[in-house]
Amino acid sequence: MNEIKQRLQDIVDRDATHECAGFGKHALCVRAVAVADLPTRFGDFHIVAFWNNRDEKDHVAIIRGDVVGHADVPMRVHSECLTGDALGSVRCDCRDQLEAALKRISELGEGLVLYLRQEGRGIGLLNKIRAYSLQDGGLDTVEANLALGFRDDERDYAIAAHMLMSLDVRSARVMTNNPNKLEQLKGYGITVAGRIPHVLPPNEHNRFYLETKARRSGHYINFGAELILPEQSDTGIAPDSAE
């Protein structure tokens, strides 16, 4: 076992008896339970599986290089999207976002993707398909989600915050266009050292979805993929599509 993997294994060993007061309104606590090599088409990673005390959704960290005890670690928090990630749906940009993050982190040599199994909580997937059905009838994403009873962005990043602390990541540079994600992570005590813009070009199917995200949810997206915010001037680390 190499040194990097051993450090992750040490975390797994340490977490075997981990209990804490938990994060967020649901007092969510996670434990790292297993680590393995994960060779991918984007490069070689390690994968760490996490158990949580809230539901039966197992989350994973996909890690490139040595992040344990490090600061300014490039990081992407990605919420599971069956239709996009696995089935290649172009109704959203989830798969593009995931692949761009893995590719960029591989190029950087260090970083991690926290892959959160949030979509399937409760009957989330069913309601997502219902939301698609409403959109097919001409209703935009946010309207559909409100009609379905969800808040604009109902995902809770307590899990991500606890996973980062378990991995002893001192501070993170977050690959996101979502201001809510940054605020939630800060609220849970994560030091956000910066934002890495994560702008990908829209396609004919998801342009409306992305425009809605930008207009109604306050996401940092410019459809000319131009650099429009101060933090997006970080061109040295901007994703390929924004370069």
């Binding site: 219902r130 059905s133 409403l134 009838g137 209703l139 309207e143 559909a144 409100l146 009609a147 379905l148």
Partner: peptide
């Protein structure tokens, strides 16, 4: 009302 009716219909 339209999205609500569409939703309840499902």
């Amino acid at each position: 009302i339209e999205p609500v009716r569409a939703l309840l219909a499902m």
